[in-house]
């Protein structure tokens, strides 16, 4: 991989030499990556390789320590308006993290109403539209505790969509789901791509990764080792570490 030293303002996301420390531990080691508009990126790698840290840097839930992060041509740093950034970059979590005290539809309308000042009726209508898009319109008025894991993850995606993001970060979205629920999430992510929404997804599910990714990013020990289309990555990985990783993942 070779990147110019300067970030590319034409990319949706452009990263140059991004590093992140947790005290003395180097979590991200000079990451450089360009992600195009509407692209579906899957980040793979062993546990502790820095995958989650990388995507958490993208919406500045974790601030990076050095290097440059640019989204839509704007440098993201300590001076960035976080409310605006997080309106552009949505996030979906492994454990859904729905607000248990709010119904599905209220989970979706809370941030638009508070952050964007959207009127309740308008926010409600938009939320129901997105809940329909993710296929759970009939569950809109239920509380999270009454929904299955797959349904909760769909609510979480609808909640992110309600902010009209251009990018959605997925942090192991399928880790707690059964295969049937996973296939549901796959079709939702296809829909997102059709809407030109850029997705960056961390996962351990190889089938899921292969099915949705435009490009696979393979990380180990805080560094990016390979970036390749899924067919290339899964059939002929270039590095030993990627090969070992794939061997282990396929064996278990």
């Amino acid at each position: 991989m070779s990147h110019s030293l300067l970030p590319d303002p034409a990319s949706r996301i452009s990263i140059r030499n991004l590093s992140k420390f947790y005290k003395d531990f180097l979590a991200l080691d000079r990451i450089s990556l360009d992600i195009a508009r509407g692209e579906k990126i899957v980040v793979l790698g062993p546990s502790g390789s820095g995958k989650s840290t990388l995507i958490r840097c993208l919406n500045r839930i974790e601030p990076h320590d050095s290097g440059v992060l640019m989204i839509d041509g704007k440098i993201i740093d300590g001076k960035t308006d976080l409310t605006e950034l997080r309106g552009t970059v949505g996030m979906v979590f492994q454990n859904y993290n729905l607000f248990p005290h709010l119904s599905a539809v209220d989970n979706c309308t809370l941030a638009p109403r508070l952050v964007r000042g959207t009127a309740r009726e308008a926010a409600d209508a938009a939320a129901r539209r997105y809940l329909e898009q993710v296929g759970i319109a009939e569950q809109a008025d239920k509380y999270p505790i009454q929904l299955s894991g797959g349904q909760q993850q769909r609510v979480a995606i609808a909640r992110a969509l309600c902010m009209n993001p251009e990018i959605i970060l997925f942090d192991e979205p399928t880790a707690a789901l059964d295969p049937e629920a996973i296939s549901g999430i796959v079709s939702i992510m296809d829909d997102l791509a059709a809407q030109e929404i850029t997705t960056v997804c961390v996962t351990h599910e190889m089938g899921f990764a292969r099915r949705i990714a435009d490009r696979i990013v393979f990380m180990d020990r805080g560094a990016i080792l390979e970036v390749a289309p899924p067919e290339d990555f899964f059939t002929s990985p270039k590095t030993d570490r990627a090969r070992n990783f794939l061997d282990r993942m396929i064996r278990y």
Partner: peptide, 25 residues
């Protein structure tokens, strides 16, 4: 703690996170 994370990721301000997400729970 995931509640705070989710609310942060939605762009809510700290006071809003407490008022609408953490305090009710």
């Amino acid at each position: 703690p995931g509640q705070r994370l989710a609310a942060d990721a939605l762009g809510m301000k700290s006071a809003q996170v407490y008022r609408h997400v953490i305090f009710p729970q």
